[in-house]
Design a protein around this nucleic acid. Sequence first.
DNA 1: TACTGGTACATAGCAACACTGAATAGCAAC
DNA 2: GTTGCTATTCAGTGTTGCTATGTACCAGTA
Lengths: 117, 117
Amino acid sequence: MSKQQMTEMLKGTLEGVVLAIVALQPAYGYEITARLRDQGFSDIVEGTVYAVLVRIEQRGLVDVVKVPSEKGPPRKVYSLNAMGSDYLEEFWTTWTALAERIEELHHTIEPTHEGEN
Amino acid sequence: MSKQQMTEMLKGTLEGVVLAIVALQPAYGYEITARLRDQGFSDIVEGTVYAVLVRIEQRGLVDVVKVPSEKGPPRKVYSLNAMGSDYLEEFWTTWTALAERIEELHHTIEPTHEGEN
DNA sequence: TACTGGTACATAGCAACACTGAATAGCAAC
DNA sequence: GTTGCTATTCAGTGTTGCTATGTACCAGTA
């Protein structure tokens, strides 16, 4: 599983993934990066996450509150708003549609996995 | 499911999808476009497919043979070679990893779908 | 002949996206 | 005073799929 390949696949999904994490519970950038790692997205870099956050804020999908931190500069806490919620729902619809089509193709080509190793 | 969203999600997967179709059976561009439509990828445009074909040829993932057509200009028939086969396998590995992580996230957020409508 | 329409391929220009790499800033500990 | 963790930002880059258009071959037809 090459890095490059994952990078390209993340295009269009990372945004939804970040929104999904924020939907679970409001969070700030540094925290979101950590959660992504916990969720298995270990290859995603900090800078990328912040770029996504800027984007979704500009689109009005999240509300932002600045909260002082004890351990560094102030945190920007993001929470999903109504628009973001709608967008996220749409994201899941699109994702499901795509995933189904691709899985279908996957099964067409490799109908069985029994004798794999 | 917005067009824009699907466009972004296709990035990084379209290439694999095309390779998967060619893996099933050698095919030429026009034919591949048609098959994509049959497979449910109705929003993918011809020009895009040809661009992908140019790319995968340049990377040496497919072999190409020019075959005369009765109904128009000669067809360029693409078939998956050894490198392409390896690449496709890697593609499925990456895809599966990503899909699993995202599905996990999906279920975390919406654990039940019982009372949906 | 000129025109339409299906087949078949190619490409220049564009917008969106994730990554690289580096910078800035606050605070604690040694 | 410098190392290290927390926390955010941003300019520059490469890859990708789409738009829009052009080229070319051939059959039918008016």
